[in-house]
Amino acid sequence: MEDGVKKFLYVNRKAPYGTIYALEALEVVLIGAAFDQDVSLAFLDDGVFQLTKAQDTKEIGVKNFSPTFRALGDYEVTKLYVEKESLDERGLTADDLQEITYEDEDDDWAEKPSIIIVSRSEMADVMAGQDVILSF
């Protein structure tokens, strides 16, 4: 790990449109990406709803920010941990989530998946391995 680089985890536990948490989290991630830290995102509980496919907010008059998750790779945010149990509890599978990829600069720009499905105990390990945890 380079000097001064810390591990930051943004924890997302809320559904996308009922409250402002999800959008605020995403904006903080995009702004924070300028600081060249080791950033990961965690999606658990209702947070997994943020990543579902086919969101269309036209008729509720708010911005659909789900496409913005696909831009995270450009910001070198390439680790999106999604909790399997949270998906299961909500009747979702990995196939219900949109595809999010990044281009690996160190591997001839090969396109790789950003979403990493983890168990609850693996998620606990991810959390325990961080320097800073920001909750939304």
């Binding site: 536990r13 809320k14 959390m127 961080q130 320097d131 945890i133 909750s135 939304f136």
Partner: peptide, 11 residues
Amino acid sequence: AAEHDRTQAWL
């Protein structure tokens, strides 16, 4: 807060 390595808020 000082004794632990990190703080995590569950909102």
